[in-house]
């Protein structure tokens, strides 16, 4: 079983190696003539005003939180879906309850206005 994942591991390093080689080859070929103006942040040709590392809008956190909740739920649903045909009616009711609880959560988030953008 574990040997199945050797190829996954190797593929990880090949991907890293591919990008590394590509960047290295380009480094040999390309010019390097940095000037002060070239290295400034792009801001439509104006002088850059302030930095970009500011606080994110809190909305993004809400989306991220909701995502985590539903994503974990999806991770629970996968094993259930695989053996669903064997579980039969019992499995269906069990999971229907689970899904309705989560859906209730979605409705709650919706009503609270966490999904409202603007």
């Amino acid at each position: 079983m574990a040997s199945d994942y050797i190829v996954v591991c190797v593929m990880f390093f090949i991907a890293l190696g591919f990008v590394g080689v590509a960047l290295f080859v380009a480094k040999l070929v390309r010019p390097r003539r940095p000037t002060n103006v070239k290295l400034t942040t792009y801001e439509c040709g104006e002088k850059p005003w302030g930095g970009a590392w500011v606080q994110y809008n809190v909305r993004f956190y809400l989306v991220a939180l909701a995502f985590v909740v539903f994503d974990v739920e999806a991770a629970f649903l996968f094993p259930w879906a695989v053996v669903f045909k064997k579980l039969g009616l019992f499995g269906f009711i069990e999971m229907a309850v689970f899904i309705f609880v989560i859906l209730f959560g979605l409705v709650y988030v919706w009503r609270k206005g966490a999904l409202k953008w603007v």
Binding site: V25, A26, K27, V29, R30, L39, T41, Y42, G51
Partner: peptide, 10 residues
Amino acid sequence: IQKEDIVPEK
């Protein structure tokens, strides 16, 4: 490949 690689100062 030939393009200069610019990393902004900041």
